[in-house]
Amino acid sequence: MLNKPLTQFLLACALALILPLALKSGVLASEILVYGLAAAACNLLLSYTGLLSFGQGVFFGVGSYLAALLLTRAGVGAPLSLIACALVGAALATFVGAISIRRQGVYFVMLTLAFAQFFYFLAYTFQDVTGGDNGILDVPRPIIAGRALASPWSYYVFVAVVFLVLFAALLQATRSMFGRTLLAIRENEERAAAIGYPVKAFKIAAFALSGAVTGVAGGLDAMLIGGAPLSNIEYHSSETILIMTVIGGGNLIASLLGAGAYLILGDLLSDVWPRWLLLFGLFLIVVALFFQGGLWGLVELAARRSERADEAEA
């Protein structure tokens, strides 16, 4: 019931409305949606196709760089820049995906990680384009219909709209024939291939879609923080997106929860103690050992409990 695409979409809308009420910082709220989008795209591969990609930071980082370059040097507007991010993200993901899916399981993970490192050092080496350690600075917030969305909360509205459109697109993809075929591949790749599905083409297409959405998330992030830092394409970026996805759980809305929990927890803990990553490390270990369904698993558990309580009353 909770897993239905429509329910997930309504939950996403509700969360996008609640965030401004619950959080003081418009930057943090926008960040949650940006990373929620990236994590959902990662989850399209992880939970819906069975591909654990450690290279999502490549598409995120390239999206950031591309949007930053188009906005600051080419004078292209925000909407067009984001479309470019989607196209380049898809192209890059097709390339990375096509090579990586030649191996399976843990080998596949290592290949995607290898690509993450490769693109990081590409960005690091060609500082003329990427600005090296400093990154590309002074990326403006978008101007939509003559209105500059300079304040964090006005930009949040823009991010929320893009988020919901792309989130709906991802949901639509999972409930289409395409998505169902991906699930069949995840369940049993050999059987899907034996039935006659072009398994590799489907995996690459999933990668392309994931890369497109992640590229847009990267572009949104550049406009949010006003720059495209080298850290957006670093190995840590891939790691962060993957961890958000795993602690979220097995469907697309869970990824938004994962991103939210990661960022809010980080925000709270880092105020309290500079060594907060120690606690965060322990949190990851606890999730891996005891809550393998992720946060979404807990939500489902709570829902089942209350259902049972209702039945008992009736």
Partner: peptide, 23 residues
């Protein structure tokens, strides 16, 4: 479990060790 949990738990261990080293 899935590789995702291998990654989660070893990244967790790596973070704990890194922070303890700094402490």
């Amino acid at each position: 479990l899935d590789h995702a949990y291998h990654i989660l738990v070893t990244v967790g261990v790596a973070l704990v060790i890194q922070e303890l080293t700094i402490i």
